[in-house]
Amino acid sequence: MSKINHFKGVLFDLDGTLLDTIGDITYAINSALIVVGAEPITTSQCKGLVGRGLKNALKGALELKNREVTPSQLEELVPQMLGSYHRHPYRHTHPYEGVEALLDDLAKEGIALGVLSNKADSLVQPIIRGVLPTHSFVFIRGDKEGWPSKPEPDGVYAFSEAVGVPVDQLLLVGDSEVDYYTAEAAQVDVAIATWGFRSRERLLEAGCRNLYSSVEELRKEVFPWL
Rank of each mutant, 00 (worst) to 15 (best):
G114L: 14
I140L: 11
V131S: 00
K119M: 05
G130I: 07
A101R: 13
L116V: 13
V124C: 11
G114K: 14
P133F: 13
E100A: 07
D143A: 15
V124H: 06
F137M: 05
P126G: 11
K108V: 05
S136G: 02
L113A: 03
L103H: 03
L106D: 01
A120K: 10
L102H: 00
V99C: 04
L103I: 03
F137G: 01
W147F: 04
N118L: 06
S122Y: 08
E109P: 00
K144Y: 05
G114M: 15
D143G: 11
G110S: 09
L113G: 01
A101W: 01
I111R: 06
L132S: 01
D143H: 09
A112I: 04
L123R: 08
L103M: 04
D105S: 12
V124M: 05
G98S: 08
E97W: 06
V138E: 15
H135S: 02
I111M: 08
K108D: 12
G146K: 05
H135A: 03
F139G: 07
A112P: 00
V99W: 01
A112Y: 12
G98T: 12
I140K: 04
I140S: 02
L113C: 02
K108E: 09
P126W: 09
Q125Y: 07
H135N: 03
G98Q: 04
N118M: 07
H135V: 03
L123S: 09
G110M: 12
L123C: 11
D105K: 11
V99S: 02
V131P: 00
I127G: 01
A107S: 15
F139W: 08
W147H: 07
G146C: 04
K119C: 04
Q125I: 14
R129P: 00
L123N: 12
L113E: 03
V115Q: 01
P126H: 09
L123T: 11
K108S: 09
D104Y: 09
L113H: 06
I140T: 10
A107D: 10
D104G: 03
F137E: 03
Q125F: 08
P148L: 07
G114D: 05
R129M: 11
L132D: 02
P126Q: 07
G114V: 13
E97R: 13
G142W: 00
S122D: 15
G98W: 05
F139R: 13
V131H: 00
T134L: 13
I128Q: 06
K119A: 05
P133K: 12
Q125N: 12
